[in-house]
Design a protein around this nucleic acid. Structure first.
Lengths: 161, 161
DNA sequence: AGCCAATCTCTTAGCGGTGAGATACTTTTC
DNA sequence: GAAAAGTATCTCACCGCTAAGAGATTGGCT
């Protein structure tokens, strides 16, 4: 990445490419992390998208019911993506869909016993992988990083609404 | 994200979910940034993948020749993805492929005049978008963030080899 | 020289995502 | 209470990526 900045300085000295130092690294780091997490999920027969849904349901208050719209906001994907994720999970018997009693437009998604058991099995491995990915950073650096990221997210409107 | 951590604390107080504070935010931020950059690229008839290739070629030393393998390492995608990216760009006349004179396995990818003009047109807008995304952070915070990200990347073997 | 492992590029099947839009239901407005 | 606007979910066509592997070329080793 430092090389990249230097190359731009050579080729286009008229442009200020300094934002790339942050945004380029964020992208690379995300890709590395995603690939690593994917491997852990695969060991449990899951992919990031499926785990995301199962974990979101698992951490919600009992009886672990969420609507597709809530899952959509949580995962930051389109409604079509959520529908397809639920299709796959439902076909595997990991979640169920049932119409909401109070609003005819809404569907309630629930974790099956099997879905819950699977996410509970994968979770410790997943956390171990995340911990390993951050091993280079001490607690203070992690906290500072989390603070900075939170600030950026809030400045971009995430988690407000 | 803070809510998410609290929920896990309720549901699984036996697990240390603190790594999620960093990794979850990185994921959300990446998605937001990616979506925003995508919009800028679209204004120039590009997508992130195409821009990535064009910009990598543009910032390389004249005569702006790179091999698919180099593009693959730079973009952190598989070789198949690079082949397909080049197919699309070649079909649009933005890059050319020609066999390497020194190694029969290798292809040399070059920017056409049109490709170069396009990336030069898109670049200022792209940088303005990146700048806007980071506007909440002062120079010091940006530098600190870049340092932390670099450290993480290096600890994961990025840019070493 | 000849072989073998490594390297480079490309192909293909399958997957998951987006974006547009259809459908159904609910809420607001008049 | 009927019409209009809004909301929730789903469908579908298309796109880009991965994973696996094929084909071609190279360079080291014996």
């Amino acid at each position: 990445m430092d090389l990249l900045l230097a190359q731009w300085g050579e080729r286009r000295p008229d442009l200020d490419v300094s934002p790339m130092a942050v945004i380029g690294r964020l992208k690379r780091l995300s890709r590395l992390i995603e690939a690593e997490l994917r491997r852990t999920f695969a060991e449990h027969g899951l992919d990031p998208a499926s785990f995301d849904v199962l974990a979101t349901l698992r951490r919600s208050a009992p009886p672990h019911l969420l609507t597709p719209a809530e899952l959509m906001r949580s995962a930051m994907v389109t409604s079509g993506a959520v529908s397809q994720r639920l299709d796959r999970l439902e076909a595997r018997g990991l979640v169920t869909r049932s119409p909401s009693p109070s609003d005819g437009r809404v569907v309630e998604v629930a974790l099956t016993a099997e879905g819950r058991a699977l996410v509970d099995r994968a979770l410790p491995d997943h956390l171990a992988t995340e911990e390993r990915l951050l091993a280079a950073l001490g607690t203070d650096r992690r906290d500072a990083l989390a603070d900075t990221l939170r600030e950026l997210l809030e400045s971009l409107g995430d988690g407000v609404d």
